[in-house]
Simulated assay, not measured.
Amino acid sequence: MIANTYPAAQHVMVLYTGGTIGMQASAHGLAPASGFETRMRDYLHSQPELVVPQWRFREMAPLIDSANMTPDYWQRLREAVVEAVEIDGCDSVLILHGTDTLAYSAAAMSFQLLGLHARVVFTGSMLPAGVTDSDAWENLSGALVALGQGLAPGVHLYFHGELLDPTHCAKVRSFGRHPFKRLERQGGGEKAGGIPTPLNYNQPRQLAKVAVLPLFPGIDAQILDGLLASGIQGLVLECYGSGTGPSDNPQFLASLERARDKGVVVVAVTQCHEGGVELDVYEAGSRLRGAGVLSGGGMTREAAFGKLHGLLGAGLEPAEVRRLVELDLCGELN
């Protein structure tokens, strides 16, 4: 991305969800705390050399450790972003979020906010603001400066001076200043011909029930059947390599076929950090395809999970969801 090729942000809404960046000590360890707006304002006032856009602040409720993030919270976050843009007149939104599920939330918002002509940036920190060697203020101020220099419309993830596409990255470290990394995935898909109306950000949404199941040696149909019995509508199936699974297990394949027949959308992604899914390379993959599994190409787990929530939450019919899974909506497949 080349700086200064897009309009500079003029009015930024900062949405504070909690997370490590604003945590303070409690009797049971670090916990989300109110009052971060004052701390943020004091810090920026102490750094007159920083040139940042005008900003206002909204504290989400409840403040959470991002380990407690849910799709229901995503709905409230989506509504807060739209309100900031369409009612409060902001052209950009900065979301302060805990790192553990930040990649999930940023990927999900990429699909929840399709068609919104505003910039949305997620950031957070590995250590709370104010503690020794914290990365909190450098990430927060860096994200504001990036917005002030101009970013493309859409969702971004900013951390330690780097802008990442949230549909291509994951948290890969539990320590240090570089917890997020772009995964070198492959497996492009055809670009969707425009955004279907039900997927536009201003259309109503409902909660979907989506699960993730990693394959492992010895997995049997009972585990998959248990997930299907829970009422899921979509499943991200983390396969081996280029999209293989236990193709010599007729019970497992029959369970996948039952999922398809019930309208459950099953999408295969690879467990590998690099590469992607090509279901027709090996017989062990083509049999999954024959049982109704769709190819997630180079999508990350986070992107596939967020995409299924976006498609199913829009109330689309399973056949339309299946069609759109393998089409690129916001760069997730390319």
Rank of each mutant, 00 (worst) to 15 (best):
E190V: 15
K181Y: 08
F122T: 01
R289F: 07
L114E: 02
E283M: 10
G193L: 08
F252W: 14
M23P: 03
S110K: 01
C330L: 03
H156S: 12
P179W: 05
I232W: 00
R39L: 13
D42Y: 11
E274V: 10
G115Y: 13
A107L: 02
S230L: 14
K191D: 02
E79D: 11
Q251K: 14
E332R: 01
R182S: 10
G234I: 11
G19E: 11
G161K: 03
V267A: 02
T70M: 00
K191H: 13
Q112R: 09
A136G: 01
K191P: 14
S110L: 01
E49C: 07
G276S: 09
L96F: 08
L50V: 10
L140Y: 04
R205K: 03
A211C: 05
V321N: 12
D100V: 05
R58G: 11
R177C: 06
D88K: 14
A84N: 15
L44H: 13
A319C: 02
F36P: 03
K262P: 08
C90R: 06
A31E: 13
R289P: 02
E278V: 09
H156K: 09
T5D: 01
R322H: 11
V265W: 04
E326H: 01
E184C: 08
N334E: 15
D280M: 10
E190T: 14
E79C: 13
L213M: 11
F252V: 12
T17D: 06
L183C: 02
A291Y: 05
G275N: 06
E37C: 11
M69R: 05
G218W: 02
G22T: 13
K262Q: 15
E317I: 10
F180P: 00
F122M: 02
R182N: 01
A31I: 07
L324D: 00
T70N: 06
A314L: 07
V93K: 09
D72W: 07
S66T: 04
R119H: 07
H168Q: 15
V131K: 04
E332L: 00
P53V: 11
D133K: 12
F216A: 07
G263K: 07
